[in-house]
């Protein structure tokens, strides 16, 4: 794991494998990374917005818990973005298959499940609040 992290920060290591690809492939890979980074930043921003703009919820500390989950998710997305970028760049240089990943599916399910829970919470609140 530490070796992988060291690899992210060493451009020479990345350039040493395989052959230099058509620069457009590298740029596309870079843009994909940036799109993921914005996704991560959006989750971080969403967590901060929940903490700052949501009124206190009936359950104690639920608001802070939602905020922390979103913040952690955002950080994980950023880390995973750079890992996937490095592995993709390596695969392009070596002419290998691009790395497959379960991460998008997991993230989509997590966000979808979170949204469903919030819908349920809103409905319960609307019915119970009468």
């Amino acid at each position: 794991m530490w070796q992988a992290i060291r690899r992210w920060f060493d451009p020479r290591e990345l350039r040493s494998v395989g052959s230099t690809p058509d620069y457009r492939f590298s740029l596309a890979n870079e843009r994909t990374f940036l799109a993921w980074l914005r996704t991560g930043l959006a989750l971080v921003g969403g967590g901060l917005a929940v903490a700052q703009f949501l009124p206190p919820l009936p359950l104690r500390h639920l608001r802070e818990a939602i905020a922390v989950v979103l913040l952690l998710l955002g950080g994980a997305v950023a880390v995973r973005a750079v890992d996937h970028w490095a592995r993709t760049e390596r695969a392009i240089r070596l002419g290998e298959e691009l790395p497959a990943s379960r991460f998008p599916a997991v993230l989509a399910l997590t966000v979808g499940l979170g949204a469903l829970l919030l819908v349920a919470a809103v409905l319960v609140d609307a019915v119970g609040g009468r």
């Binding site: 992210w8 920060f9 451009p11 990345l14 740029l27 971080v44 903490a51 955002g74 950023a78």
Partner: peptide, 30 residues
């Protein structure tokens, strides 16, 4: 096209991760 620069991308990703950690600290402080 800017040449592939292996350091910029990890650096900005690290920045986003630090921002997320800072956010967690700030929320828990409150």
């Amino acid at each position: 096209p800017a040449p592939l620069d292996g350091r910029s991308l990890p650096a900005v990703a690290l920045g986003a991760t630090v921002l997320a950690a800072l956010g967690v600290v700030l929320v828990l402080r409150g």
